[in-house]
Design a protein around this nucleic acid. Sequence first.
DNA 1: TACTTTCTCGTACATCGTACGGAACAAATG
DNA 2: CATTTGTTCCGTACGATGTACGAGAAAGTA
Lengths: 249, 249
Amino acid sequence: MSADPDPTLRLLWRHVLPSDGTAPKRGRRPKVSVDDVVDAAIELADRDGLDALSMRGLAERVGVGAMSLYTYVAGRDDLVVLMVDQVVGRADLPPMTGDLRARLTLVAEVQLADHRAHPWLLDVGGVRAWLGPNVADRYEWQLSAVEGVGLDDLEMDQTITLVTGFAANVARAEHAVRRTERESGMTDAEWWEANYEALAEVMSHREYPIAGRVGSAAGEAYQAGRDPRRELEFGLARILDGLEAHLGR
Amino acid sequence: MSADPDPTLRLLWRHVLPSDGTAPKRGRRPKVSVDDVVDAAIELADRDGLDALSMRGLAERVGVGAMSLYTYVAGRDDLVVLMVDQVVGRADLPPMTGDLRARLTLVAEVQLADHRAHPWLLDVGGVRAWLGPNVADRYEWQLSAVEGVGLDDLEMDQTITLVTGFAANVARAEHAVRRTERESGMTDAEWWEANYEALAEVMSHREYPIAGRVGSAAGEAYQAGRDPRRELEFGLARILDGLEAHLGR
DNA sequence: TACTTTCTCGTACATCGTACGGAACAAATG
DNA sequence: CATTTGTTCCGTACGATGTACGAGAAAGTA
C-alpha cells in the first residue's frame, strides 16, 4: 500500500552507497556522469542565477542533447536538490574549537560564505528530500557546536536554526542589491540619483520622522562598507549574548 | 543625463499623491482599476503561490484580455512590487504600548502573521522600488518600537532587520512543508512512511550521533504542535535577552 | 462629422520543462 | 557471426509563460 521509495534519495547518497552490483553491465555507455551534470549546473547557477538555469542550456554546457539529461536526473527540481547537497559538500568544515561564541560564530561564517558564493541557495524553496549526505554532515557539524553546553535537544536544533537563518538573511540582503543591479542595469546609487527628486516629492505628503533619520543613517553605513563580518556582527552578538544569558540562569 | 524617474514609483504612491490633473479626460474608459488588478493578483497568489500567478490567468480573473493588463502595470515584476505594498497596507498596526519586549514581540508577530497569510512574500526577490507608502509606514511603525531605548540609528535599523528577518524565517520553515506537501501530493508523514526503510539503509553507512538524537526530537516536537507563538518563542527570547544585555551594559 | 487621445486585445515569438518514441550502442546469448 | 536484450541518446512536439506589436474600439473635443 505504501508508495515506492523516492528514487532521488538513492541518487543523493550515490557516493556513500556501496556499489551493490547495480552498475549496469549491458547497454550503451553514458557520455557523462551525474556529477558532471550537477557540477555544471552549479557553475551555471553561480554565474547567472537559478532562474537562468535551463535544461537546454545545461545540456549544451555538458555537451549532450537536452533530453539526455533526464537519464541522469529525474527533472529540474530533483536536479536542484542534488545541487544543494553537492555544493554543501564542497566546503571543508574546520574542527570545532574554542568556546561557544567562537563555535557558533564559525557556524554563521561558514553559512554566510556558502550563501555568498552560491546565492541561488536562497532561491531554493522547500524541497522534501534535502536529506543528502553532505547536508546531514553539515547538520551534524553545526550541532557539535552546541553539544554539551546545557541545551536540551530541541533547543539545540532551534539554536542552529536561529544562527544559520540569520546568516542566510544577511546574505539575502546583500544578494537582493546585486540582483536588482544586474536586472535593471542600474547601480543602486544611479537609481537614487534618478529618482531622488520624484521620491522626495512623493514622500513629502507624509511624515516619516524616525524612518527618515534612521533610513538615511542605515543607507550611508550600508554604502560605506561591505565587510560581511561587520554585517554579521550586530545580530550575531545579540543572539550570542541572549544565549549565554539563557545558559547562565 | 540622468535617466527618467521610475514610472512604477508614481504608481506605488498613487493613493497619497494628489490628483494633479493627470487623470485623463479624453479617451476610452478603463474597464477596471489598478487596485482591481493588484487585489486579484494577491488573491490568486494567496491561493496558488507566486509561481502560479500568470498574466493570462490574472487577466481572465479580472475579466479582461491578457494584454490589457499592461495598460495598468508595466509588467509582471512591477505588479509584484505593487502587490507587496498593497498587502502590507492591509494589516492595521496596533499602537506601540508596553515595554521593549512587548513592542518587539508585537513587531515579530505582525510580521509572522503577514507571511503566514501571504506566503508568496517569501518568494519575492529583491526588487528595488519597494519604497511604497505602506512599506514606508510599516518601517516607521517598526522603528517606533525601538525609538528612545538607547540604540543609535544604525542599531535601530539592525534590530528591526534582525527581528523581522527571524519572524520571516519561522514563516519560511512552515511554508516549506506546506509547499512540498502540495507539490508532491504527499503528507510529510506519508513521505517518511514510504522512505523510512530506504533512508535507514542509506544512513546506516555513516554515523550521526548528535543529529540522529536531535533530529528526531525536533521532528517529534515539530509534528506535535503548530502554534506560531511557540515557534517564535525560543529565538525571539534569545534575541530580546541579548538586546537587553546590550542596553544594560 | 472629423480628429485626438486613450484603452482593448488578437496574434506572434522566443523560451521554458518535459512526454514520447525510435535510433544508436554495448554486452550477453545463440 | 547473428540475434537478442538492456541502456542511453536525442529530435520532435506540446502546452505554458511573459510580452512586443499594431490594429481596432470607444470617448471627449473641435
